[in-house]
Write a protein that binds this DNA or RNA. Structure first.
Length: 564
RNA sequence: GUCUCCGUAGCUCAGCAGGAUAGAGCGUUCGCCUCCUAAGCGAAAGGCCGUGGAUUCGAAUUCCACCGGGGACACCA
């Protein structure tokens, strides 16, 4: 396919007193399609050329019309509006989509370079609640997006499996716990200990000291503490994996904070050597005031480590192990400061790769009753949300009498898909209040809507029988077919855009647009017509849509059912 | 207090390397299943794009100030 933008720019480069780059940047795609496929505004040129913009537009239009393959070029006030030949565009676009087949949208942009995505990272012994869905689902999609544009992605679940909280947990277990309860219902039981600890600690602050001391023992590797900790960790992971299984999410590494425990002395020594550490109030800190940041404590006054200490050694370890091009952290925006500090400290240590540390923040999920709080028991469990969605989907399937091979399988795909899609449809930075009605609403711009559209494509193909689709632009120049084709053609660019902006919602919005365009086409035109050539042509558009929807859903971590 | 993010239709949100009358979905009202899946399609109604300035031929989009809301601010993670 001709690069229209480049063609315009090259023609105008000869006619106008501007650089190729500038011209290229001025070319736009009108939001109102009636205005054309491309437009060139001439306002800026007025001053430069000492001429009225509408007159310039006329000259520009003439130059483009003479030298390009546009079907129509016309000046409208200060704009030059350009229309490509629909037949040419449809032929070329569908050729590209069809030739790529299932691989459409994938590219080798990343040249196989390694990228780390750290996501999900729940805290051991705490419930996997609706607040965790964001990191989990955004991270999973970023993994798929970067994989699609040709990077070698390493997925890390940086488990919150270390820190003073485990001192608290161990203390609480010894005081009030028993093994039987933990084995039966690990997370809920451990959480109850944790909650109890906080209640008691308010009355008796000495408990906090005891917890800190216990963590020191754990960090020193004392047998009893380590064994309890290992046990808590394993039981928790079992529960997390159940949810990951439902979401079909896996990781390459579960190296959480504890993994770096033995790697910290070296990092601390290195920081000392580089004169970054100063003593303050008994702790070792990095003074970040010159950079407008608050000081970062690295070693507590009791000698034990902190979250940021472990993150620094994790970053170093990852660079040494994977030599990442980028290390992406999908972590809540509440930790903005933490990542600024982390980045700055790595930079101060003299590592040029500090710039490759990328924090991808996202907004807060709260409940109508207020911020979620595991301690106060104010949480919505992610597993419950998924199960509710599946249950509701099952009801709808039965009510509609959907002819599906497996109601269970379909209900799972659609129910979970709805939750995931909902999570990925807004800009990740926005805060939101969790709302059952909203996650369980399957009409309008939702996952089920896109999946339904996919199933509709499938259904048409089943009804078409053995016919081999074959593009013939002659039959695909109706408004809705043309709009759909234009959208489909933009898929690879959308995938790249979503990846590079770390924003899966760009893709989510896009596949909704595809689904809308397809449904419009479906209603405007009959596909399985008697005319064989026309039928084949329309089917080729159906296939292209189907592949793009399936691929797009996949990149969001959502499955596409054959029937629904 | 300092830093930071958010503020667009009744609700939830797109649009924000400035461009031609501001877009969806939900909700409301009204149409469309003798035709490929109605979890669908179409139409109507609904807006001083938080406020005030600045830059520009042109600002929802850039800059400044203010207002309202969220978040963070050294031995938690």
């Amino acid at each position: 396919m001709v690069n229209f933008k480049l063609e315009i720019a090259q023609i105008l480069d000869k006619v106008l007193p501007l650089e190729l780059e500038e011209i290229s940047g001025m070319i736009e795609i009108p939001q109102d399609k009636k205005m054309g496929d491309y437009a060139f505004p001439c306002f800026k040129l007025a001053k430069l050329m000492r001429k009225a913009p509408n007159l310039i537009a006329q000259d520009v239009a003439a130059a483009i019309a003479e030298n390009s393959i546009f079907q129509e070029v016309k000046p409208v006030n200060a704009y030059v509006n350009m229309f490509v030949s629909k037949e040419y565009f449809v032929t070329e676009a569908l050729k590209e989509v069809t030739e790529a087949g299932e691989k459409y949208g994938r590219s080798s942009y990343g040249e196989g370079k390694p990228i780390i995505v750290e996501y999900s990272s729940p805290n051991i012994a705490k419930p996997f609640h609706i607040g965790h869905i964001r990191s989990t689902v955004i991270g999973n999609s970023l993994y798929k997006l970067y994989d699609a544009i040709g990077y070698d992605v390493i997925r890390i679940n940086h488990l919150g499996d270390y820190g003073t909280q485990f001192g608290k947990m161990i203390v609480a277990y010894r005081k009030w716990g028993n093994a039987e309860d933990v084995n039966r219902e690990p997370i809920k039981t451990l959480l109850s200990y944790y909650t109890k600890f906080h209640e008691e600690a308010e009355k008796d602050p000495a408990l906090d000291d005891e917890a800190r001391n216990t963590f020191v023992k754990l960090e020193k590797g004392e047998k009893e503490e380590v064994e309890l900790w290992k046990w808590f960790r394993e039981e928790s992971l079992k529960e997390f994996n159940r949810v990951y299984g439902m979401l079909d999410i896996t990781f390459d590494s579960y190296n959480g904070e504890s993994f770096y425990s033995d790697k910290m002395p070296a990092i601390i020594a290195e920081m000392k050597d580089k004169n970054l550490l100063v003593e303050s109030r008994g702790a070792q800190i990095v003074d970040l005031e010159p950079y407008g940041l608050t000081p970062a404590p690295i070693v507590k006054s009791d000698g034990s480590s902190l979250y940021i200490t472990r993150d620094i050694s994790a970053a170093k370890y990852r660079k040494d192990t994977y030599n990442f091009e980028k290390c992406i952290y999908v972590v809540a925006s509440q930790q903005n400061l933490h990542f600024q500090q982390l980045k700055k400290i790595v930079e101060l240590m003299g590592y040029e790769w500090a710039k490759d540390i990328v924090h991808v923040p996202f907004g807060l999920v709260s409940l109508a009753e207020g911020t979620m709080s595991t301690r106060k028991g104010r949480v919505v469990f992610l597993e419950d949300v998924l199960n509710h969605a599946i249950e509701k989907t099952r009801e709808i399937i039965i009510e509609k009498g959907v002819n599906t091979d497996s109601v269970d399988e379909t209900a799972k795909m659609v129910g979970i898909g709805a939750v995931v899609f909902n999570e990925l449809s807004n800009n990740r930075i926005k805060d939101y209040v969790f709302n059952w009605d909203k996650v369980l609403d399957f009409n309008g711009e939702t996952g089920p809507y896109v999946q339904y559209t996919y199933a509709r494509c499938k259904s048409i193909l089943r009804n078409a029988g053995d016919i081999v689709p074959e593009t013939c632009a002659e039959y695909l120049t109706g408004d809705s077919a043309y709009e759909l084709t234009k959208l489909l053609y933009g898929y690879p660019e959308t995938v790249k855009d979503a990846a590079l902006k770390y924003e899966p919602s760009i893709l989510t919005r896009y596949i909704v647009d595809i689904a809308e365009a397809f449904n419009k086409f479906y209603h405007d035109e009959h596909i399985l017509v008697d005319n064989e050539a026309e039928k084949k042509a329309k089917l080729s558009l159906v296939v292209a849509t189907m592949n793009t929807l399936k691929s797009g859903l996949n990149l969001l971590g959502i499955k596409a059912p054959e029937r629904m």
